[in-house]
Design a protein around this nucleic acid. Structure first.
Length: 573
DNA sequence: GCCGTTTTCGGCCCGACTGTTTTCAGTCG
């Protein structure tokens, strides 16, 4: 099993234990272990061999043993027993909003409900409402939850919800009683996908704000409408929560609901160690005579705990608090630092805009340079260029640059296919004529991990390759990543001074933010690339810069921040 | 199950809302 599969298995154990009525802290330990594994940056086999798995945050002896066994044998005896002891259909029932482990257990034990079909029947016949702790309302909510389970479970691409967030914020800020309004949650942290939206408002008069929020156009269902908190369902099952707090609590609440969970836990622990209790309401000293900290900004919240302000993108519980304590937070890259990008398509392959249209749009972005990297011949589905067409395009780009019609410098390139054996789709003589070579996998995605890793490493070691394109091939919410050892690819890129792409197509965001910090520490450069197939997609660079920030990247760790002359020296070296 | 310059046992973040209750359990984030 690879890291991801093992993490999913640990999640499954956590859920099964929860349904068994196990100690909730034990349940949490497995869930924490799964997260620790997902964000592991070292090679798992190396850690196991060196006996260093235990000692990682959240991984003790028990989890280290379980992970080792899953990695080496692919199975775990106590998991088999656990699975056998519970009806498999309970897992689906647990996903219905409003049903947690206690209620699912009650349904199972008292009504012998073991799947969604039986649950639906029991609700329709009114038997669920008769159970202790249930009622008519709960029964109705379960039926609604079953009907809408697909939509409610879906996450949403960050860029896809951006305009919705903007619209709601504009609406809130226009209300007379609103002093401040911000979006919080995973949207503010720029997670690649967003489960629901969180809004925080400062006001002394919450009621009209709550009333506006639940009555907005686009609201399909009101799931909560309280004095300080309301929740609604928007289109596609997207949930939006609003919390209204007094102005003096605003920045504590904004921090709290920005999260992440891991970050907040670490912050609360830090507060406790300094004699303070932390919640969304503020910081309360254990000593009633001590001064109560106030916050007129989010900086004040961090300052009260002896920390520098931590950008929301970094708040994932990945060491940001330690860095903020010692003044070692990185000076993160900003969109203003970007001078161009390297992976764009035209109508020559599968793009929707011509070379000239793309160039005009790049100039409008204010960029110094950008490179065309159309598909190569093996990507026939995308109208990949053969040698003759690529030579013609190189010539066309040279003429466009010579014409002086645009200030932006167009670099010629190719998104050359990495073939199944790791060789490239064009010969060395042709590659040598290009300014930029991006190498990507587009076919034979089902190789096993060792074969895929060896394939990509062979391509990356090719002296003509500058940038590795979309490393894992994942499509968020659609397609799993290829099986590939990212740690080994990163090491290879570092050893050969190659650049890895951060593909900022909102469905890709690949390589993922969680790997960049370690990659950059090893000296691997990042190329923030839109993979634009039309001019409007240059905006991906803007949105994708948040992902680079999430990966702790500074401007000098990003290839696109180099001035043209320096860039050309790097490309030709 | 994890963790520990007070701890190897006894903690483990905290609060709002709903629905079912007459004071609170369960769920959610």
């Amino acid at each position: 099993m690879d890291n991801h599969a093992i993490a999913e298995t640990l999640e499954e154990i956590a859920t099964l234990l929860e349904l068994s009525g196990e100690n909730p802290f034990k349940v949490r330990a497995y869930a924490n272990g799964a997260r620790a594994l997902e964000t592991l940056t070292e090679d798992l086999d190396t850690l196991i061999a060196q006996g260093k798995l235990k000692g990682h945050q959240g991984i003790g002896q028990g989890l280290a043993d379980a992970i080792t066994q899953l990695r080496q044998e692919g199975k775990l005896a106590f998991l088999e027993e656990l699975r056998a002891s519970l009806p498999p259909g309970l897992m689906e029932i647990l996903k219905i909003p409003g049903l947690g482990p206690k209620k699912v257990r009650a349904l199972w034990q008292l009504l012998e409900i073991t799947d969604l079909v039986k649950l639906t029947e029991a609700c329709e016949s009114g038997r669920v409402a008769e159970l202790k702790g249930f009622g008519a309302k709960t029964q109705d909510n379960i039926l609604a939850g079953i009907r809408n389970r697909e939509a409610y479970g879906r996450r949403h691409l960050w860029l896809g919800v951006q305009s919705i967030v903007g619209g709601i914020l504009t609406g809130l800020r226009a209300l007379p009683d609103v002093e401040r309004a911000e979006a919080a949650g995973s949207f503010r942290r720029a997670r690649e996908t967003v489960g629901d939206l969180d809004f925080i408002v400062a006001s002394e008069n919450p009621k009209p704000i709550m009333d506006w929020f639940v009555a907005q156009s686009g609201v399909q269902e009101v799931t909560a409408h309280g004095e300080t908190k309301s929740s609604v369902r928007l289109a596609d099952g997207l949930q939006a929560d609003l919390r209204v707090v007094p102005a003096e609590q605003f920045f504590f609440a904004l921090h709290h609901f920005t999260g992440s969970k891991d970050h907040n836990v670490a912050m609360r622990q830090r507060a406790l160690s300094r004699g303070l209790s932390m919640s969304e309401w503020g910081l309360t000293p254990k000593d009633p005579k001590a001064k109560v900290p106030v916050a007129a900004s989010e900086e004040d919240v961090f300052r009260a705990l002896g920390l520098d302000w931590i950008p929301p993108e970094l708040r994932e519980g990945q060491g940001e608090i330690e860095a903020a304590e010692s003044g070692k937070l990185p000076h993160l890259v900003r969109y203003e630092d970007i001078r161009g990008c390297f992976h764009n398509h035209t109508t020559a392959s599968d793009g929707r805009a011509t070379l000239e249209q793309m160039t005009a749009a790049a100039e409008a972005e204010g960029w110094e340079y950008f490179s065309i990297a159309d598909h190569s011949r093996s990507s026939a589905y995308a109208n990949g260029l053969d040698e003759a067409r690529l030579l013609a395009q190189i010539d066309e780009i040279a003429k466009l640059n010579a014409s002086g019609r645009f200030k932006v410098r167009v670099l010629s390139g190719s998104e050359v296919d990495i073939l199944k054996d790791g060789s490239l789709d064009f010969d060395d003589a042709l590659l040598a004529k290009l300014d930029v070579v991006v190498a990507s996998v587009h076919a034979a995605m089902t190789l096993d991990e060792d074969a895929m890793t060896a394939r990509i490493i062979r391509a990356l070691e090719h002296p003509r390759v500058h940038i590795l394109g979309h490393l894992t091939g994942r499509l968020l919410l659609e397609r799993e990543p290829y099986r590939v050892n990212i740690a080994k690819i990163v090491d290879c890129a570092a050893a050969n001074s190659k650049c890895i792409e951060l593909n900022t197509n909102p469905r890709r965001l690949d390589m993922d933010w969680s790997h960049w910090r370690r990659a950059a520490e090893k000296g691997v450069l990042c190329a923030i690339n839109p993979d634009a197939h039309r001019t409007e997609q240059f905006v991906f660079v803007r949105a994708g810069t948040f992902q680079a920030r999430k990966g702790w990247l500074t401007a000098d760790q990003v290839l696109n921040t180099k001035p043209l002359a320096e860039l050309q020296r790097w490309l030709r070296r």
